[in-house]
Write a protein that binds this DNA or RNA. Structure first.
Lengths: 210, 210
DNA sequence: AGCTAACGGAATAAAACATTCCGTTCCGCA
DNA sequence: TGCGGAACGGAATGTTTTATTCCGTTAGCT
C-alpha cells in the first residue's frame, strides 16, 4: 500500500532522489569526482543524469543549493527553540549531522551561484547571527567567541571523516562536544584576532573553478 | 657575507628548497594539483623538477616524508619538555603551525610509502602515546580523552584555511585553543565511542590513488 | 500494436596531465 | 677568450580522464 502507482513518471520521480543522494555522497567524498561516478553510485546510466541536469555544473549547483536550503531551514527551526543555548547547540548538531557544511563549502567555486542562492544566503545570515546572540546572552557561551567562529567549528567537524558514515557521524558529535566544551564560558582568553566573515567566505566570492 | 659562493651548484641547492616549499604550498592547497602548478609557484621550469625527482609520485613521497620527519622531530623535542601539559600543548601548536598534518594525511594514498617511512611512523607512535600519557597524568587533560583524539584535533585544525597564510596560522591557533580548552579536565562526558587509531589511518592502509 | 518517455551505455570530442626532448644560458677552467 | 657541460626553460608528445552526445532498447500507456 506504499507504492500504489509504480507509474512511469512516479518511478522517475523516485529516481530523482536516488540520484541526488548518490551525487551528495560522491561529491562529498571528492568534490572533483567525475560524473560517471555519480551514475555508478546511483546505479543508473549517464542519460538519467543528463535528462535531469543540463550539465555537471548544474548538478553541483542544485546539490549545493539543496544544502543551503537545509541550512536555512535548520536555522529557522532553531529560532523557535526557547532556550538560547539549546537552540545554538542543537542547531550545530543538526547541521553537522546533515553534513551540510561540506556541501556548501567544499563545492563552492565549482559553479556560478544563482541569484536565488545569494538570496538564500542573505536570509540565512541574520538568523545565524540571532542564534549566536541568544546563545551569548544565555551566559553559557564564552565572552570572546564571535559569530564567525561557527564557520570554523563547522569546518572542523566536516574535516572529520572515516570510510564508515555512521562512525563518521559519531566521531563528529564527539568532536563537536569537545568544541562546544571549549566554547563554553569561563576559560582562558582566546588568542589572536577573531575571525571576520569576509575572511571565511572567500570561496564564494571568487568566481568558478579551483 | 651571507652568500660568499653563488656558485652554480650552490644556486641549485638553494633552488632545491624553493621547489620543495612551492610543492608544499601547492599540494597543501590541492593534493591533486598538476605538477606544472608547482613549477609555476616555484618560478622555475618543469625541468628543474624532473632533474630532482624521478616522477610526480616521487616528489609527493619526498614531501610527505619530510613532513613525517618534522612530526617525529617535534615529538622527540617535546619529550624533553619537563611539564607534561606544556609538552603536549606545545607539541600540538608546533605541529599545527608547521601544517604538517595536512602534508602527511592529505597526501596519503597518492604514492606508495617507502619502508623508511613506515619505519618513521612506527618510531613516532610510541612518542606521541607517551606525550599523551604525560598530559593525562598532569591532571589537566579530561579523563575521557584518548590518544587518537589528537588525530581529530589535528585534522580539524588543518581544515582551517584562508587564502592568507599568516592569517591561517592565527586562526588555527585560536581554533586549537578552543579545542584544548574543550579537552581540559572538568567538563561533561564526551559522547559516543572514542576513536581508535585503526579507524583514522585508513588513508595509509589502502594502497595508492584516490 | 504503436508511440514515445525514460534509459543504458558506447562513442566522441575536448581538456588536462605527466613526462620527454631540444635549444639556450652561463659558470668555471684552461 | 673560448669551450664543455651542468642546469634550465618550456614547447611538443602521448596518454588518460572527462563531460557531453547519440543511438538503440525497453517498457508504460492508449
Amino acid at each position: 500500500m506504499s507504492k500504489p502507482l509504480p507509474t512511469r513518471q512516479a518511478k522517475a520521480t523516485r529516481k530523482d532522489q536516488v540520484i541526488l543522494d548518490a551525487a551528495r555522497e560522491v561529491f562529498l567524498a571528492d568534490p572533483k569526482a567525475p560524473i560517471t561516478a555519480v551514475a555508478q553510485r546511483a546505479g543508473v546510466g549517464i542519460s538519467a543524469l543528463y535528462r535531469r541536469y543540463a550539465s555537471k555544473e548544474d548538478l553541483l549547483r542544485t546539490l549545493c543549493h539543496e544544502g543551503l536550503r537545509r541550512f536555512l531551514a535548520e536555522a529557522e527551526a532553531a529560532a523557535s527553540e526557547p532556550d538560547g543555548w539549546e537552540a545554538f547547540t542543537g542547531f550545530l548538531r543538526r547541521i553537522v549531522d546533515a553534513d551540510v557544511h561540506s556541501l556548501t563549502v567544499h563545492l563552492a567555486g565549482t559553479f556560478t551561484p544563482t541569484p536565488q542562492m545569494h538570496d538564500d544566503m542573505a536570509r540565512t545570515e541574520p538568523l545565524v547571527r540571532k542564534l549566536f546572540a541568544r546563545a551569548k546572552s544565555s551566559g553559557r557561551l564564552r565572552h570572546d567567541a564571535v559569530v564567525d567562529d561557527i564557520t570554523l567549528v563547522l569546518e572542523g567537524c566536516a574535516a572529520v571523516r572515516v570510510p564508515d558514515s555512521v562512525r563518521t557521524k559519531q566521531l563528529r558529535r564527539r568532536y563537536l562536544a569537545i568544541l562546544l566544551s571549549g566554547l563554553s564560558a569561563g576559560a582562558v582568553e582566546l588568542p589572536g584576532p577573531a575571525p571576520k566573515s569576509h575572511e571565511l567566505n572567500w570561496r564564494w566570492t571568487s568566481g568558478q573553478a579551483e
